[in-house]
Amino acid sequence: MEAYIVAMLVFAGFYALMALGLNVIWGLAGMVNLGLVGFFAVGAYASALLTTKLLWPMPLGWAAGAAIAAVAGGIMALIVARLRGDYLAIVTLGFAEVIRLVASNEIWLTNGTDGISGIPGPWRGDVSPQQFNLIFLALVWCAVGIAFLLLSRASHSPFGRVLRAVREDEDVAAVAGKPVLWFKLRAFALGAAVVGFAGALYAHYNAYIAPDGFAPLLTIYIVLALTAGGVGAMRGAVVGALFVVLLLESTRFLAQEIPGVTPVQKAALRESIIALSLILLLRFRPQGLIPERTRTHSRPGATP
């Protein structure tokens, strides 16, 4: 049981990192990004290829995964510079599909739909599987901690305030003299870097990646994590990711305890419970478990 809980906490860590990344792009800058899994895949493939084919050391691979995802994010921001709302969502969704199709067709590079197996992990093979899990648990949650601290700081810095202004009204921000595109680009690159880093870690934890693993399902989980946790709040992203993993996993045991339920019904029941809880959450707590709190200053002259 302990090993299982540790493994699920590792997964929660990946989800939390992705939710943090998405929170910069969507929560702060207000750009709907449904192409999340694309950046995740870019990070994962970059690090997996560099460490298996060019035999780079793992930390360099992870850094490269984040950097390449950031570049992809920056380019993406330029492409979608004039798009907002639904149109932006569609283009980003398309981006993730393009990445997945490139990964399944450029066989010379990515090994196609067979995927890349045998990706090294820190001390994998030298330590027991459980120790490896614990190493990764520490690694992932350190990364979550660092990302959380840096992004929270950024969120309350002038940079974060401008992003919020862009989110609320782009034109007003522009009129106030803020270079909107430049801020959007940096937000996109920063968020994508965090997501790409999560992807890089994920590849080395699972030891195997394939285009199938980067289906839109994962994006949906992360969007749900962020919505559940509270869009805009960094703490909400982490709490939301934990909540989604808890929901995904606890339903296994819940559905198992109901007498007379066959495994097939259990599988269907699990999906219904997950869907229903999220509908209920959005109906009764649309602001999320931890709503965004911004430090508003009192209006000049309002207080005596």
């Binding site: 090993a3 693993g213 399902l217 599988a267």
Partner: peptide, 19 residues
């Protein structure tokens, strides 16, 4: 456990079965 025909879900299911 249901693998949902998805490697990510499959790994989580396998974790539960093994651990």
């Amino acid at each position: 456990e249901d693998d949902q025909t998805n490697p990510d879900a499959g790994v989580r299911g396998a974790r539960k079965l093994i651990d």
